[in-house]
Write a protein that binds this DNA or RNA. Structure first.
Lengths: 351, 351
DNA sequence: TTGAAAGCGCTACCAT
DNA sequence: ATGGTAGCGCTTTCAA
């Protein structure tokens, strides 16, 4: 009870055996909860173990038991932090994934370190994780191919340009933009400002950035709209500035679509500072999580970005794949759903 | 190059040695980057390794090299998810901690599974982590004592009732409540509604819940105020309801202090639905992160809850402790700082 | 520069 | 119910 400290440094199973006056095999049995040990013996040995603070060397256990790499019951979500400022968005993915792990008796691991191939493979080799959730997927991402080749389980939140065979869950961003702009057009808007993620993300071929811009192009053509957009860092001040620029470029604009709910107060305030009230004098539609949409005033009319659900589903998908490796590959492409709230309306003087 | 797959299942260093026509020792040397190998040999062996897809068994490596448990360069943030609904709050802790890890070449691990003592110790024993950040600290938390006894490094975000010797960073919640209410009183408010975390959290002795209520008691005494509060789940709808109740109980109230920024729109909307505009007809002060405070309209006058900074500092503290185990124990108790924004003002008809 | 062999700490099989 | 012992896959002297 009392013994203060870790002489455990170099204790081996042999030491325990000696101290408890039994054989190594017996100690091993006890350690592994085997039934064929006399209760008295077990107690005696257990006492020694506790008193000495001994704990078995995991490496040796694994090696001896032939478990090349033991199931760790850990899944890891990889979110390379340098590729994007953390935003509310990503956080909800984490929550969802963590919640699923909790429900499925699995540990959840979040890694924000950007990884090269070696790091990634080592995660598996070292037994640190049983599977990974990949985020910030680029159109030409190299990771799915690598992991597939090594037969390491993974799912993507996002998708590459040609992912016939990989598990993924993603929002149909192309369609999301078309839906949002379509809605605004339906309401009678013709001059619509668009605020998108930084061009740098697109240059890096990050999926959503690429697809959002292609969706925008398609929407422009489909509705015969003139381009009017800014690609900026999605912070409140940057969006504020961008909105002002848009207003300068096209004072006649009656609506703004922004791809990020959490920075939309920037737009709303810029509008207010130019004497435009939302939604009466200008509509704002966003791509946003329900939570953020509700937090902003006026509550955002928005394409729902169900990030927590996506995180939850991604983790669940991965855990399933772990349990049934031969099960068919699931691919989920969520269709956009617009939630009408308070931030958009018919333009002044429209039909 | 082409080889499609992993026969690697059972490849050992001996197989590589045989295939490359060298001894096991030589392969080992190459694996470990030792200099005393002929370049030709090295190339030949490397090719075999690559072609076969061989990768060494980590357990065996560790065992043989005597590294009882290798430094994992991982720190783990423990956030037991059942103890609290995830709120924006906690998320910012994660961001901060992750950011520090990134800066300090360390992996960041988030675990949401509630843990018993065995789980916790195993995290260390199995070499999964070098240190942990504890959250959701209870006044009488058992974890610091356990970890200290085993000499496993940790820091707390929060603190126990008697943590003379543990590393921690915490906000002075007692003082925070007094400051907020003091500010309101200074502005001329006398009838102030208070919205706090659920009583269940307090029953569980979760630090902030306990200290916030004790701070409230102190504030009541100090300013001779009558109690007027609700303890509720901090969601927008629940806070909405709570605010309505407060309004029913004390229609004359002129201010509300809530401990959670992200659910404060619930209060603001309840007020609006009772024809009270914030801040003109009723002030709202919150305990909130800067980000949330800015997101809400009107921007919240709030006690700053620097969660991301706290997460960052906690991780940094831990990483330092890992590098210099003998360094003195750091303890940081942040004093509350009020940021005046738009949501509070002088009550109607006050001096 | 290379090879042979002795363990690392533990499990699992075979005896007893 | 217990003990003896042969490896698990690798690293690391020590020789050659």
């Amino acid at each position: 009870m009392i013994q203060s400290s870790e002489s455990s440094e170099s204790l081996t199973i042999a030491d325990i055996a000696r101290l408890a006056q039994v054989s190594v095999s017996t100690v091993s049995r006890i350690l592994n909860g085997k039934p064929d040990v006399a209760e008295v013996t077990r107690q005696r040995v257990l006492k020694v173990i506790h008193d000495t603070g001994y704990s078995p060397d995991v490496s040796a256990q694994r090696l001896a038991s032939g478990a090349t790499v033991a199931k760790s019951r850990v899944i890891t979500l990889l979110f390379p932090m340098d590729h994007a400022e953390f935003t509310q968005l990503e956080l909800d993915f984490f929550i969802g994934a963590a919640a699923s792990c909790s429900k499925h008796d699995t540990f959840f691991n979040l890694m924000t370190e950007p990884m090269d191939a070696d790091h990634l493979l080592n995660l598996f080799r070292s037994g640190q994780t049983d599977g990974v959730i990949l985020m910030q997927i680029r159109m030409d991402d190299w990771r799915p191919e690598l992991l597939t080749r090594h037969d390491y389980p993974f799912v993507m939140i996002g998708r590459t340009s040609d992912n016939q065979h990989y598990r993924y869950i993603d929002l149909d961003f192309d369609a999301a933009v078309e839906t949002a702009i379509g809605y605004l057009v339906e309401q009678g808007h013709r001059r619509i400002g668009f605020i998108a993620r930084p061009a740098s993300a697109r240059a890096q071929q990050i999926g959503p950035s690429v697809r959002i811009m292609s969706g925008y192009q398609r929407a422009l053509e489909r509705y015969r709209l003139a381009p009017l957009y800014r690609e900026v860092k999605l912070t409140v001040p940057d969006v504020y500035e961008a909105t002002l620029e848009l207003l300068d470029e096209a004072p006649e604009l009656t609506a703004i679509f922004t791809v990020h709910g959490a920075s939309s107060p920037g737009a709303i305030r810029a509008l207010r500072d130019r004497d435009r009230l939302v939604p009466d004098d200008c509509s704002v539609v966003a791509l946003a999580t329900e939570r953020i949409a509700q937090l902003v005033t006026p509550a955002l009319t928005a394409i729902n970005f169900p990030t927590d659900t996506m995180g939850y589903q991604a983790a669940t998908m991965l855990i399933n794949a772990l349990q049934q490796p031969s099960a068919p590959v699931e691919q989920i492409l969520l269709q956009p759903r617009l939630a009408v709230r308070e931030s958009a309306s018919t333009p002044v003087g429209a039909t």
